[in-house]
Each structure stands twice: as C-alpha cells, then as structure tokens.
C-alpha cells in the first residue's frame, strides 16, 4: 500500500500504462546493486532513486575528486574529498528519502563480491577497469544474477544486459581481458563528460524494465553509441557454448582477481 506522499511522488508512473500501481510496488520492493559511483553510476543511482527503487546498494572505494565533477553529476563541489558512497547517499536521499541506501566503501574482490551480490535482485556494472568487469561478470554468472553492463571510451559507449539465463555473458564476447599493452593508456584516454550520462541512463532504463518485466530487454543485443556521429547501432551477441564461465564445460569455476593494469606506454 502506498502512503499519500508516495501516491503524489509516483503519480506519473502510477497513471502510466505499463508501470501502474503494480509496477511501482515492484520498484519499491526491488533491490539493485550499483557498482561504481562515478560517471555511469551517477545517472544510474539518481534515476533509480527518482523512480522509487526501494533499496540501492552502492559500491565504490574512491573519494570525490575535483576532476570527477566534469561528468559525475551525483557529486558536487561541496563533496570533493569525501567518500563517493557518502556523497552518493546524500544525492540519492535528497531526491527520494524513501530509498534505503546500503554503502560499500571498499574495493570488490573475489573474497567479498558473492556475499554482497547475493542480497540483490540485479547488478549494474558502472566500473572503470577490466579486472572489476570480469570479476562482476563471473560473480553474476556464478550466482545467477543479471548484469546490466555499460562501458565508455572517449566518445563511444556500449551497453547490454549480460548473464540472463538465455543470453550471453561478457566472456561469451571476450573470453579474457586484454593483456596489458593492448589497451590504450588510461592517462591518454580522457572522456567526453556527457557520454556516461547517455550510457548510464540506458543502463537505468534496462534495470527498471527488468524489474517491471516490461518491454524487450537489451539481451542478446549490444547497443553501440557514438556521440560524435550521434548514432546508435546494435549488434547481435550470442551465448557461446564454449564460454569459459557460462558455457557447457566451464573452466572458470571460481573468481579471479586480475591485476590492475593501465595500458601501453
């Protein structure tokens, strides 16, 4: 049952065919884990909070830095220097005090990730490194959680939903992370400030659709976005029977902590 304030707050959802009171209740009951409270995590957490997702877990070990503010819209000049999870909690609560926020102010590893994700319905990957992405992928496959994936580079982004029972996982596409030296240096990379806004909103959209069970999810398809061409395309992605983690004869049966690396010199 909704309170009067909730009816007022979620009125535009409740009257919307495809969401309705029932859908809004699903959102309020949902538990979503947002990994990374940065460029992608900002629009994800803010829109999930505004939409009334009841429980948001937020994982980040970093503190807010002035150079984050060009794109990480959940943080502000006033929160520079404080842990991102605290800054995120304040931003989420300011939008919607209904949301309960669970903060994880540490780095995910093979030791702790399974224990954290087991309490959530859905995982959203807004991280910024290959080791984190493969760890999250494998943990989601091993615990049967869908992984709403988004990734950006300079002016381009990718988004999809991994590890649903009928769809591929990250390793179906790329069995192993690239070796150091084959990816561009992080220092030279830079990122277009508005880019994570677009990709993060796509991730939030897919998460909400999955919770509601409505529409056609971004499963088996990867969305490719090019901000400079202002072009959105999609390619078909398939579950690989030879996949090392979700295939028929998995070789990755426990979690791996890949070394942090940062590209070629």
């Amino acid at each position: 049952m909704f309170t009067n304030t909730q009816i007022e707050r979620y009125a535009r959802h409740i009257i919307l065919e495809g969401v309705g009171g029932k859908g809004q209740e699903k959102l309020l009951k949902a538990r979503v884990l947002v990994i990374g409270a940065g460029g992608l995590g900002s629009p994800i957490a803010l829109y999930l909070a505004a939409s009334g997702v009841g429980t948001l877990g937020i994982v980040d070990f970093d503190v807010v830095d002035m150079s984050n503010l060009q794109r990480q819209i959940m943080h502000s000049t006033a929160t520079v220097g404080i842990p991102k999870v605290d800054s995120a909690e304040a931003a989420v609560k300011a939008i919607n005090p209904d949301v309960s926020v669970i903060k994880y102010n540490f780095k995910l590893s093979s030791e702790n990730i399974l224990d954290i994700i087991k309490d959530y319905d859905l995982v959203i990957d807004g991280t910024d490194s290959f080791p984190a992405r493969y760890l999250i992928n494998d943990a989601c496959v091993l615990s049967g959680k869908k992984n709403v994936y988004g990734s950006i580079f300079k002016f381009e982004g990718q988004a999809t939903v991994f590890s649903s029972p009928d769809g591929p996982c990250l390793r179906c596409l790329y069995p192993e992370p690239p070796p150091p030296g084959m990816v561009p240096s992080c220092q030279e990379a830079g990122v277009f400030g508005v880019l994570p806004g677009f990709i993060g909103v796509v991730q939030a959209t897919e998460a909400i659709k999955l919770i509601l069970g409505t529409g056609k999810p971004l499963i088996g398809r990867m969305m490719l976005y090019d901000a400079l061409r202002m072009e959105v395309r999609e390619v078909k992605i398939r579950k690989d029977p030879e996949c090392p983690v979700c295939g028929e004869h998995p070789t990755v049966t426990h979690l791996i902590d890949y070394e942090e690396f940062c590209g070629i010199r």
Binding site: L40, G41, D128, S129, S151, L173, A189
Partner: peptide, 11 residues
C-alpha cells in the same frame, strides 16, 4: 572490449 567508466588514473 572497452573498460571505461572513467579513466582510472586516479586509482
């Protein structure tokens, strides 16, 4: 494969 959310320089 791309990894970014943001450049990881700071970490």
């Amino acid at each position: 494969a791309i990894a970014g959310g943001a450049p990881a320089k700071k970490t």
